[in-house]
């Protein structure tokens, strides 16, 4: 690994970190440019980026299909309220 290139090129570790950061918050202009440069030459990280995107999409879709979390909470609340009335 050549040290001086660090100023221009992200390592794969850093690049994948920023791919994740980007899902959560906006990147700075410099981060965004450096990430694009890295992805332009790095096949492994480009695959990571696509796969990460797919995982995000899948997880969100699962969440959307999981209406049961809301009804679960209602059941829990009813259960607690019954318990309180028994006291």
């Amino acid at each position: 690994m050549k040290k001086p290139t660090h100023y221009i090129w992200y390592s794969c570790q850093r690049a994948t970190e920023l791919i994740e950061k980007k899902h959560i918050t906006e990147l700075s202009a410099i981060e965004s440019v450096k990430l694009k440069l890295h992805l332009g030459i790095c096949g492994a990280c480009t695959k990571y980026s696509r796969q990460s995107e797919l995982i995000e999409k899948l997880a969100k879709e699962i969440a959307a299909r999981q209406v049961e979390t809301a009804t679960d909470l209602l059941f829990l609340q009813e259960r607690i309220i019954r318990k309180i009335e028994e006291q």
Binding site: M1, S11, C12, A44, C45, L54, L58, E61
Partner: peptide, 25 residues
Amino acid sequence: YFVNGHWKESEAPKEWAVADETHLL
């Protein structure tokens, strides 16, 4: 996963053959 910031050879993402993303689930 990484050595000196680079993907370990065994850990580097491989191509995924995804025929139909929207119906995977």
